[in-house]
Design a protein around this nucleic acid. Sequence first.
DNA 1: AGCATAAATAATAA
DNA 2: TTATTATTTATGCT
Lengths: 178, 178
Amino acid sequence: KSTPDEDLLADSPNQPTISQSSGNVVDGINLEDIKEFAKAFKLRRLGLGLTQTQVGQALSVTEGPAYSQSAICSALASQMLAAQLSSQQQNMYASGQNHLTDFIGMEPSKKRKRRTSFTPQALELLNAHFERNTHPSGTEITGLAHQLGYEREVIRIWFCNKRQALKNTVRMMSKGMV
Amino acid sequence: KSTPDEDLLADSPNQPTISQSSGNVVDGINLEDIKEFAKAFKLRRLGLGLTQTQVGQALSVTEGPAYSQSAICSALASQMLAAQLSSQQQNMYASGQNHLTDFIGMEPSKKRKRRTSFTPQALELLNAHFERNTHPSGTEITGLAHQLGYEREVIRIWFCNKRQALKNTVRMMSKGMV
DNA sequence: AGCATAAATAATAA
DNA sequence: TTATTATTTATGCT
């Protein structure tokens, strides 16, 4: 129940002490510092109103290869989970010549895909499939997509959402509701 | 053109038979039962004159997190779509807390192992260990796995991923970002 | 307005 | 790096 965001907002209640270097040190950097970094990074990102994906793309320009959404997330989110950091040296980072800001102008590519609507016939077939197998293979998905005349991705997402709905239901049931 | 509401009103024209357990079983619960549950839930809600949003807020008080309107809807509506349920055994659910966690016992196309999900408690312990030692020995891993009730391999991988995440963070830091 | 649900984003297991 | 799950957002209905 502690998302990075929440930890982000939560006020750090403790240790103003510069973590005594007894703690875990990774690559010469203290764990606490790493957490602090992750926190600051996310604040920056949110402040700029960027998604992880966007930051990844932006970084790919200046920095080397490419940071995928997963990479960003993996690198930072994880560190914040257990974070209860000394709320000091806050913007020991903040200052530097932020590369990120330069990309604030990036795209307006905010086009959301038009919500597709399935025909009753399509839904019937999809549901039938779902009852038989909630996790169709890639081939099956492609087959369905072709057969029904929808984009493959759309069909894939449909199954994702459908599984989610089912799981939510089961969760509620087991909670003893109704 | 078949909204859940309509299905709701429509009288179930068939099978009073306890669905023969041949059907899809999710987490020990039969699909038909799930549909039945969804139907009952909605009836309850309407009976109380509540909106989905209201129910969500109400549940958030007693139950943990928060159920958004979307959540309620997503959980229940979907199940009713194809519903033609045996209107029997009403609260065979109400009781036991079936491991809602991972439904899908269905396997075909075993390409990828099902993503396991850790409980907050498990994560807490794992993180604690990680902070103490990022490279647990084989014995330690086995111990943790046993203690937490996860497969040894799953625990091992968790440490791999965790180390990777940490390394990535350090890399970014040293790149001078933020 | 409220519902249903597709699409987008975040998180992370494999 | 990939694939899936979890959560949120937002849009097309009625």
